[in-house]
Design a protein around this nucleic acid. Structure first.
Length: 586
RNA sequence: GCCUGGAUAGUUUAGUGGUAAAACAAACCCUUGGUAAGGGUUAGAGUGCGGGUUCGAUUCCCGCUCCAGGCUCCA
């Protein structure tokens, strides 16, 4: 089934290329594969500029051409024939060279008057099958994805067997845009990215800051239960720290330029590791101290490429839920699994389901640091743990860091883009570079192993994912405002104020809406702000009670942001219910 | 960084080579209303920044800044 869809998309990409060649005879077509939600074709238009305004024209040509595409015929040809056929297209010639080198056969596929170098995988009768397609967007793409190569024009499109499926997909795209964290972030006043501050630098607005603080509290509480020790470290430090760690040599182009202070060069910290190494080194460590788990919610600064910045998902300051676990080699596996369990625990709290793990394994060819036995055991135990929980994962051979295996969590955003969030990395290198030691039970000096881990990754990215995941309707414990108090008329303002006082005494976050507006309007406004509970107070609730009497035994009428009328309930009972809900993160 | 597109009141948008229009939000007034928009009044931008063309530019041109999507899916 999936193959049929891929074939349909693949053939449609040929049709796109054919239409482009009709309209722009001098264009050079390159590659056009099917992809997850459609297809694309990369084309060199020479000096012609193509924009989205040209898409309808190309689409129209495609509809014309497809009428004569009654078949897709493939055949094998010789290298010489191929070179002759594509003599004007240096990209195809390059591909022919590559195919020849690999010793594979060269095949071409023909429909109507269009012939393309192609490995195959097509539908039988395009004129019948290609009906419901749409060109979606234009983008730049480097030839072979390498920025040293020429920038080609990529045209994205999609195609489905039926109109219903196409319409549904386009509708989903529209729906996804409504969940965009940039849009919701602005509407709900969660964060800002002021131009005056600088590219990729965001400010958490008061409401966004509440969400972040609640997550930070969760992290600190949970980590404390799990034996982590929390520290605070500076935002800048001597450059030599990162020279020692090796980061300077590898990632200096991602670091903010050094600044000279007195006689030394300092960096804005791009990672916390060296500071936590200092904590370890500040005392003589015994095997009894291990594992030592040093943790910090800390912001690091990285100079990401300007074109890659994207709202809150990719910024230039990253607040990590970071920790470095120093342990004996024989504790590595248990510690790794402990972190893994904690990571799953957190993801479950947020109800995230659409994620998978990417396990970076060693490739047999490369050389790695550390003890082989530990490596292999760690890899095996992790796979066992993931499979036991029935979670999705991919093994990615050769993707291990040279200093140890790693496990990343990949989560999708509203429009299906994948983002790396949490990570666990085993490291046999830094302890050596920083000369970390401990005294074992025999009084001998030993080197500890190290695990770097950030279960959520960065709070900026994670909260962006959450905004899209909840579409702004955060669960009660995270909601910036938990209760909107809506008096039916100004006559009930005193009682509404009393209510506000009661809720605040109980640590509930409220908004007291005394606007001179109708109740309906206030309900609408609170609902749009995605406030979980709307508390309505009027004659029926006040019922002639004095403020004191009302506090003791009053009623409130509750409506949810989903529009459900929950009727009247005693104030104290309501607070009890809310607290129960908050405790269970629901 | 590179490709394409974009930047107009707090927000979302309209618009024109002759010094900007609307909705929502805001403030005030009337209304005192029971589960998704009651009515009215007022204020609010000189059109991202810099330069050029022009009698005149928000509109055309150039540069810059910032934003969005893309630059991994292999003939």
């Amino acid at each position: 089934m999936k193959n049929n869809l891929d074939n349909l998309r693949h053939t449609t990409s040929h049709l796109l290329a054919a239409a482009v060649l009709e309209l722009y005879p001098y264009a050079r077509i390159t590659l056009g594969p099917p992809i997850e939600n459609g297809f694309y074709y990369d084309i060199d238009f020479g000096n012609d500029k193509i924009s989205e305004e040209d898409l309808p024209k190309i689409e129209k040509k495609m509809r014309q051409l497809v009428k004569n595409w009654t078949s897709v015929e493939g055949k094998e040809i010789s290298i010489d024939e191929a070179k002759k056929l594509f003599k004007n297209n240096q990209y195809k010639l390059e591909l022919i060279e590559e195919i020849t080198k690999k010793g594979e056969k060269i095949t071409i596929y023909k429909s109507g008057n269009f012939i393309d170098l192609c490995r195959g995988g097509h539908i039988k009768n395009p004129s019948q099958e290609i009906k419901h397609f749409k060109l979606l967007s234009i983008a730049g793409a480097y030839w072979r994805g390498n920025e040293k190569n020429k920038m080609l024009t990529r045209i994205y499109g999609t195609v489905f067997p039926t109109k219903e499926e196409l319409d549904k997909y386009l509708w989903q795209l529209e729906e996804a845009k409504k969940r965009d964290h940039k849009k919701i972030g602005k509407e709900l006043k969660l964060f800002i990215l002021p131009q005056d501050v600088g590219s990729g630098l965001l400010i958490w607005s008061p409401y966004g800051a509440i969400i972040r603080r609640k997550i930070e509290e969760l992290i600190i509480n949970e980590q404390t239960k799990r034996g982590y020790l929390h520290v605070y470290t500076p935002h800048i430090g001597k450059k030599t720290l990162w020279q020692t760690s090796g980061h300077w040599d590898l990632y200096r182009d991602k670091m903010y330029a050094p600044m000279k202070i007195d006689e030394d060069e300092y960096l804005v910290k791009p990672m916390n590791c060296p500071f936590h190494m200092m904590v370890y080194k500040s005392e003589l460590r015994s095997y009894k101290d291990l594992p030592l788990r040093i943790a910090e919610i800390a912001t690091v600064y990285r100079y990401e490429k300007a074109g890659e910045l994207s709202g809150m998902l990719r910024v230039r300051h990253i607040t990590q839920d970071d920790s470095h676990i120093f342990c004996r080699e024989d504790q590595v596996v248990d510690e790794f699994l402990g972190v893994f369990d904690y990571m799953i625990y957190l993801l479950n709290i947020f109800g995230l389901k659409d994620y998978y793990f990417r396990l970076g394994l060693r490739s047999p060819k490369e050389k790695y640091l550390g003890n082989d036995e530990i490596w292999i055991k760690a890899e095996k135990e992790i796979v066992k743990a993931i499979e036991k929980k029935g979670l999705n994962y991919i093994k990615s051979e050769g993707d291990a860091a040279f200093y140890g295996p790693k496990l990343d969590v990949i989560i999708k955003d509203a429009i299906g883009r994948q983002w790396q969030c949490g990570t666990i990395q085993v490291d046999f290198m830094l302890p050596e570079r920083f000369g970390l030691e401990y005294i074992d039970e025999n009084g001998k000096i030993q080197r500890p192993a190290l695990i770097h881990r950030a279960p959520l990754g960065s709070l900026e990215r994670f909260v962006a994912i959450l905004i899209e995941h909840y579409a702004g309707a955060f669960p009660l414990w995270l909601s910036p405002v938990q209760i909107a108090i809506l008096p039916v008329s100004e006559k009930f303002v005193d009682h509404a104020n009393k209510l506000a006082e009661i809720f605040q005494k109980n640590n509930l976050r409220i908004e007291n809406n005394f606007e001179n507006e109708t109740l309906s309007k206030k309900i609408r406004s609170a609902t749009l702000k995605k406030i979980p509970y709307l508390v309505i107070i009027g004659e029926k609730e006040v019922n002639g009670l004095s403020l004191e009497e009302y506090e003791k035994n009053g009623l409130v009428a509750i409506r949810t942001r989903e529009g459900k009328d929950l009727g009247q309930i005693n104030i104290n009972q309501f607070i009890l219910n809310l607290n129960r809900q908050i405790e269970t993160f629901s």
